[in-house]
């Protein structure tokens, strides 16, 4: 059950990352009255292939890594919470969400408009800052992978060592 949860979560995060630049187009096609249901599904399915065409090798790698790590992270957190450990420490969970937030900001590529960070910085008129980052925002994706990995490690540690009162 937890493996399935991890798989579904990873798939959703991955799909969001590759669909993000064209979400409004997908919504429009889904609501188009003149297209059959199977035709409506064709576009989102074919857009999944953009991981190979619209991402650099580096950004594709950390996008897939973030999706997988977040799925595992969520499944482990769910397992952990369901064990009803009353004195659970929050650190692993928090790091996981910070990791996902950082990863989502850095997913994609700045030049092709698939980077959420570009849109976010544009809102505050600071998108020029990307030109000064060696990986043009990809740093956030790498940071996301690191934080999610740390989070998984911390959760695994807590699962293996449930709350015990030290004497």
């Amino acid at each position: 059950m937890y493996a399935l949860l991890a798989l579904i979560t990873s798939t959703v995060v991955f799909a969001f990352a590759v669909w993000f630049p064209n979400i409004s187009l997908i919504v429009e096609i889904m609501g188009h009255p003149g297209i059959s249901f199977s035709q409506k599904l064709d576009l989102p399915i074919s857009l999944l292939g953009s991981i190979a065409t619209n991402f650099t090798l580096l950004s594709a790698s950390y996008t897939i890594a973030i999706a997988l790590l977040f799925g595992v992270n969520l499944a482990m957190t769910t397992y952990f919470l369901r064990r009803k450990i009353s004195e659970m420490r929050q650190s692993g969970v928090t790091t996981g969400f910070i990791g996902l937030a950082s990863g989502v900001l850095g997913m994609g590529c700045a030049a092709c408009g698939s980077l959420l960070l570009t849109s976010s910085l544009s809102l505050i008129g600071a998108s020029g800052i990307l030109a000064f980052l060696p990986l043009a925002g990809g740093e956030f994706g790498i940071l996301g992978v690191i934080l999610l990995s740390v989070s998984i490690y911390l959760i695994a540690k807590q699962i293996q060592n449930p709350a015990v009162c030290k004497i």
């Binding site: 064209n22 429009e28 096609i29 576009l43 074919s46 857009l47 953009s50 065409t53």
Partner: peptide
């Protein structure tokens, strides 16, 4: 039909057909 990024040919073709 606006399309952002370098997308697979199948996606471009579908929009043109549409």
């Amino acid at each position: 039909y606006p399309l952002s990024g370098a997308q697979p040919y199948a996606s471009v073709k579908q929009l043109i057909d549409l």
